[in-house]
Each structure stands twice: as C-alpha cells, then as structure tokens.
Design a protein around this nucleic acid. Structure first.
Lengths: 214, 214
DNA sequence: CCATGCAGTTAACAACTGTTCTCCCAGTTT
DNA sequence: AAACTGGGAGAACAGTTGTTAACTGCATGG
C-alpha cells in the first residue's frame, strides 16, 4: 500500500477485483428478487457472473457475508439523504409529502435493494438481520436527533422522541414493501400519507392529556 | 365418503394420515426457526419426522404448499380472538392494553408461528406471501368493521377507517417481530403501547383540521 | 370375505451443493 | 529485469437435493 487509501481502486489490479466483487453483488441482488438469502447458493451467483465458483472466496467468506455487504450498499447512502430531507422541510404536511416521495423514489430507482431489505429484515440469516436492524436503529436515532432540534419537540422526553422516530422509520419500511407489491403506487402513497398525518396529529396532542403509570 | 364430513378424521385410516401431516407441519415449523421457507428442503422435513421422502407427496405438492398450510394454522384461529378482544373492550387505554397483551401472549405461546409469519410475509415464496397478505387484509377489514360500529367512528369515511385498521394490524405484526428479537418484552410492549396511544390521539383529532386535496 | 384404495417404503436417477487443493499468469514491487 | 503477490481457473470430493418408479401391507367399502 502506497499510503492506505480507501478509494474505489489503487492500481489496475485492485480495480479489476472490485469490478468482479460488484458483479457478484449485482448478480446476487438480481437472484434475490425471487428467493431468500438463506437459499442463495454460492455457485448460483458465480455462474450468473461467469466466474469460477472458487473466485467467490476471494471476496466473501460465504453468502451471509455477501448479504451484509448488500445491506451496506442498500442503506449506507440513505442516511445523508434522509437527514437532509428532514432538515430541508418544516413540520407538517410538507414534510409528510417529502418523506413519502423520498421512499417512493427509492423504491422506483432501486427496487431490488428495497426488496432485499424488506425480505431479509426478518429473514433466516442472523448476521444480515442484525446488520439491517442496526441500520434501522441508526436511522431512528438520526431522525430523533433531528426532531430534538425543532420547536415541536418542546416538552418531549428523549425516549418518547425515539419512540416517535422508530414509528416513522418502521412505517417507511412498511410503505416500501407495500409499494413493491403494487403496480399502481397512487393508492399506496395516499394511504401512507394519511397514516403519517394520523401520527403527526397524535404528536401535536401528545402533551395534552398525560398518561399516568409510565 | 359416507357423508362428506370435514372433521379431523373419518376412521382410523384418515386419522393416521392427519397425524403424519401434522408431524410434517410441526417439523417444518421447527426447521423454519433458523431458515427461510425458500431454503426448506422436502427431504429435510421428512427426515426430521422419520418418514420416507416420498411420503411428503401424499400431503403436499411441494414445500410452498406446506407453507400455505402453515399460514392457515398460524393465523386462522386468530380472527375470532381478535374480534372478540376488540368487542369486549371500549376505546382508549383499555383497548390498547388488551391488544398489546393479546399479541404478546400469542408470541409467548406460539413463537415459531409468529416468526414464520413475520419472516414469510415478505419472503421468497410468492404463494405464501399472497396467503399471508390475504389474511392480514382480512384482519384489517374485520377491525375496520368493528370500528364502524362504534361512536368514535362518526364522520369517518370507510376508506379512512380501513386505513386506520391497517395501521393497527401492521403495527401488531411489527410488534410481534420486535418481541421475537428481545428477551425482555417489557420495553417492547411499553413502546408498542405508546405508539398505539399516539395513533389513538391522532384518531381523536382526525376531524379537527380537514386536509384539502384528498 | 374378498377386492379395492391408498399411506408409506425402497431404490435409483441426474443434478446440484460447499469446500479443498493445485495450478496459472498478469500486475506489482524491489 | 527478476521476484513476488494474489485473483481467478480447474478438477475432484463427499453430500445433498427433488422426482420417478414399482412395491407392500393394512384399513375400508361392497
């Protein structure tokens, strides 16, 4: 290593390696549209790419390892986008529309990634489940942190803010998988918006009638 | 057939058949705790039961067929229980507690069934996905029908009631899978209750500020 | 009481799986 | 220019898979 750079490639040799690695990830993602990760075979992936089965080991220990890499690819870049969207919009109807549009656009552009996350969130491979869970928890914490900066959060406990944020995040995943199962996204986004409106309405009156025994 | 009865057994011969069939379902459910249906092998199941692989075909066409049967076993009996719970409780905090207790009890008594539903709801086997989706839609319609009978639903459109009901149903599934991943159900049920409280609060003020463009 | 139906068995099949070991050769380093 | 490194190929391994075929024996209906 000439200075320990983490960029996409250092020299033509490593460039080719990352190229095959990406080809493996792409092929796996395509195969996973019609099956679960726990039934995805290593040979199946290499065959789709056109490399020898043993080449797989140069990049991943097993298919679970590949799954974890796919989680990063699917959700890694979404953090900044989500936080930016929340920061750019105020509270209320405007933000609801922006959030639903964001998730709808994501599903439209990266349907295979969205399907993978929805499927493997509760899937049969523990390490991948944990990786997704960690990412979603991170999302919730980021959303809660954004909420905390706003005037509407006055009087809210940190725990309640996190509860609210998780509700939003989980609802986004729910909406994404609903979008994947329809060919007319109109009714789905419409319902999603109304549901978010319901939660927002509850948020506004959260402090009205405090509940005892909490 | 001596009168076309659909009961559990008609004679000792069919009784034994249903016994093996149930053994296959039980073994499959146990194996599915650590993998997805799309990777469940027919031989794997028969081996666990202790019968020949070919015996499988006497009961199911393939593992997808077995999966559909598992959906019925997991959710079939829950309809009456859920509706009864809703009918027995009024609106508000009491109902929230009852609903959360119901789902918590279900996960405690039938963890494997709950895991199966959560996992295969978005799993790799289309027919099973559709079977679960149909059941959940049915749940939502039943909950909406119950809501419609109550005074709090005055002024609500049928569509909005269904939207609200789906929110509750989806939240229950969400809560179930959260319960499966923890060993201390306290915090999870606590969060679930607060989230339902949020939705209930939103429900109360739904008609306060009507939204244009709907 | 005998003939039929059918749940379950046994055997064999071609195809597929993950993993190991050995080898090759182009890109990199010295 | 020579030595080295490591991504990838090739072949072989012991197991596994779903599915077919022909069978056996017992409960059942006529």
């Amino acid at each position: 290593m000439s200075h320990t750079l983490d960029g996409p490639a250092r020299g033509a040799r490593q460039a080719q390696k990352q190229k095959t690695r990406q080809a493996l990830l792409d092929a796996a993602l395509r195969l996973l549209e019609e099956q679960s990760l726990s039934s995805l075979g290593l040979r199946e992936v290499t065959r789709a790419v056109g490399v020898a089965p043993t080449a797989f080991y140069r990049h991943f220990r097993d298919t679970a390892d590949l799954g974890v890499a796919l989680v990063e690819e699917a959700l890694g870049s979404l953090h900044t986008t989500l936080v930016a969207t929340l920061a750019a919009t105020g509270d209320g109807e405007e933000r609801i529309a922006a959030a639903v549009d964001l998730i709808a656009a994501y599903v439209r552009v990266y349907p295979a990634h969205a399907r993978f996350i929805a499927r493997e969130q509760h899937g049969g491979v523990k390490r991948v489940r944990e990786a997704i869970g960690a990412q979603l928890t991170l999302f919730a914490e980021e959303v809660a942190a954004q909420f905390a900066k706003e005037p509407e959060a006055a009087g809210w406990s940190e725990d309640d803010l996190l509860m609210l944020a998780r509700m939003y995040v989980d609802h986004m995943v729910m909406t994404a998988s609903a979008l994947l199962e329809t060919d007319d996204e109109g009714p789905v986004t419409d319902t999603a918006r109304r549901q978010l409106r319901l939660v927002s309405l509850g948020r506004l009156h959260w402090l009205d009638a405090p509940v005892r025994g909490n």
